[in-house]
């Protein structure tokens, strides 16, 4: 690829990011509704933590689970529903017949999901924290940001794999994405430690990047641990990112070829 081609791909990726923010702006009423739903969920989890006793630490344990899950869900959903959304809007054929490379398309979607997810999570925390008088005095900020960055990469690959489902199954794909998401929620220790699960489920949890992200986040926020002491969580997460990103792209491209053979690459209706 020469410099001109790289620039073209850059503009294409940026166009995807800007289009998604344009859509957020135009669907602002729905954004408020979904954000209110996330706040209610997070606050509920905070009260569950409070009712369990243990004070600030238990409340924070639950709120970290809720906010981190909300962030990872945004990443996963934005990516996984990118095809379903365009199919519903009717623009899918135009996006897929454009010369933009598929990796640019997907990375543009990821870029939007990360920025949007971070802003949303930050706002969520600002709203929820005062309600419980949360004390973040012991948080290690740089290590927390590192966890977020690596978790984003590994979850992005996961999302790409999920995105193939609506591509190859226009009718049921989105529902299967939600089942997959619920399964990750169950095994990743979002609201409980993974060692309370049966052994076989605990083994499954090691294949989810969310498990490492949550454990690492709790260590940096609750105990103030630094990057080196959470390396046992960061390393597998980074490894999963390196594996899942190319694998996600490969699976998505396979799904695209399958759809082109079967005639699935078209709008609804």
């Amino acid at each position: 690829m020469n410099k001109g081609d790289i620039l073209k791909e850059f503009y294409a990726g940026l166009a995807v990011v800007i289009r998604n923010f344009d859509l957020v702006k135009r669907y602002w009423k729905w954004e408020i509704v979904f954000f209110a739903y996330t706040i209610a969920n997070t606050v509920t989890m905070g009260f569950v933590g409070k009712s369990m006793g243990g004070g600030n630490r238990t409340i924070l344990y639950m709120i970290i689970g809720a906010t981190m899950w909300s962030y990872l869900s945004v990443l996963f959903e934005v990516l996984a529903e990118t095809v379903a959304w365009e199919r519903w809007e009717g623009t899918i054929e135009y996006t897929f017949m454009s010369p933009m490379k598929r990796i640019t398309h997907l990375l543009g979607t990821c870029g939007f999901a990360i920025v949007y997810g971070m802003l949303r999570t930050f706002l969520l925390f600002i709203i929820v924290a005062p309600l419980f008088g949360i004390n973040l005095g012991s948080m290690n900020v740089s290590a927390t940001l590192m966890v977020l960055a690596i978790a984003s990469i590994s979850f992005t690959g996961f999302g790409m794999m999920g995105a193939v489902l609506p591509l190859i199954s226009p009718e049921k794909g989105v529902q299967v994405v939600h089942i997959f998401q619920a399964f990750i929620l169950m095994i990743s220790g979002v609201y409980y430690s993974v060692n309370v699960m049966p052994k076989w489920m605990e083994t499954l949890s090691y294949f989810s990047p969310a498990t490492y992200a949550l454990e690492a986040m709790r260590k940096t926020v609750l105990n103030g641990e630094g990057i080196w002491s959470i390396m046992d969580k960061l390393a597998p997460m980074a490894l999963m990112g390196m594996l899942f990103l190319p694998l996600g792209l490969f699976i998505f491209k396979w799904g695209e070829r399958f759809s082109k053979r079967k005639g699935f690459l078209k709008r609804n209706g």
């Binding site: 620039l7 073209k8 791909e9 503009y11 294409a12 940026l14 166009a15 995807v16 800007i18 289009r19 344009d22 859509l23 135009r26 669907y27 809007e89 009717g90 623009t91 054929e93 135009y94 996006t95 454009s98 010369p99 933009m100 398309h105 709008r267």
Partner: peptide
């Protein structure tokens, strides 16, 4: 195509800006 196939909530400018962008045209 027979259906206009746009992001209907977006404006003409926003839709066309996206259409140009994915063909690698600078904003």
């Amino acid at each position: 195509s027979v259906e206009a196939s746009f992001f209907m909530k977006l404006s003409a400018i926003e839709n066309l800006r996206y259409a140009c962008g994915i063909y690698g045209l600078p904003f």
